[in-house]
């Protein structure tokens, strides 16, 4: 594992940003040229949402991966988080401007449709985290930064729930996402910290 960690250390953070950003223009290009099928609006919306969830899950996995497997991705955690937030935002923008279109309808949907209320709440919880994802905020907020960023737990859970709630019928995929998210959150319960006391030091 130390060889892997050593190799990872050599990867610059900007490369992760770049790699993570590629799907956005690629998806847009495919949506415009028929690559996402004959109904590109919902396809694009869905793909962006899925990518956002995958990145959020990856972000949640950073601490357990280090703790249980010794894999150190800490250096890339901010990039993963900022990318995840960007995809959540793009997903929201596609919903607003390409899907719903009617501005009067948007507020009605947010308050009347539980899966949208839940998704929107998740997004709002992520906003302060995105705003404070810089060194200056970390310095200024001190220990409060860590407390603030605990908000990512309910946010990701709401994201997973949002996916489950919008599915028609009993579908496997959204349930798999929600199980993975729940599993990663369960690993953070005090129960598991009894087994590994040292965990407390680097968990966040």
């Amino acid at each position: 594992m130390s060889a892997v960690n050593q190799a990872l250390r050599r990867i610059p953070v900007w490369a992760v940003y770049l790699l993570g950003a590629i799907p956005a223009p690629w998806l847009l290009y495919r949506a415009l040229t028929g690559g996402l099928g004959v109904e590109p609006i919902s396809a694009l919306e869905h793909k962006l949402g899925e990518l956002a969830l995958q990145l959020l899950i990856l972000g949640l996995a950073v601490t357990p991966l280090r703790q249980y497997l010794g894999l150190n991705l800490l250096k890339f955690r901010r990039a993963i988080g900022v990318l995840a937030f960007s995809y959540v935002t793009l997903h929201l923008l596609v919903w607003l401007f390409l899907d719903v279109q009617v501005l009067g309808q948007i507020w009605a949907d947010i308050v009347k449709r539980p899966y949208i209320t839940v998704g929107m709440a998740g997004f709002l919880l992520l906003v302060p985290l995105a705003v404070t994802s810089n060194n200056c905020s970390v310095r200024r907020l001190g220990p409060r930064w860590r407390k603030l960023h605990v908000l990512v737990y309910p946010a990701v859970l709401l994201g997973g729930l949002h996916y489950v709630m919008l599915a028609k019928g009993f579908q496997p995929e959204p349930l798999i996402y929600l199980s993975v998210i729940s599993g990663l959150l369960l690993l953070r319960l005090p129960l598991s910290s009894l087994m590994t006391r040292s965990r407390r030091i680097d968990s966040a």
Partner: peptide, 19 residues
């Protein structure tokens, strides 16, 4: 209960299809 039925989007209108 989960979405409006007041409008629809015709398949084939591309990325900027109007409802």
């Amino acid at each position: 209960p989960r979405w409006s039925q007041a409008s629809e989007r015709q398949v084939g209108g591309g990325l900027f299809a109007k409802r």
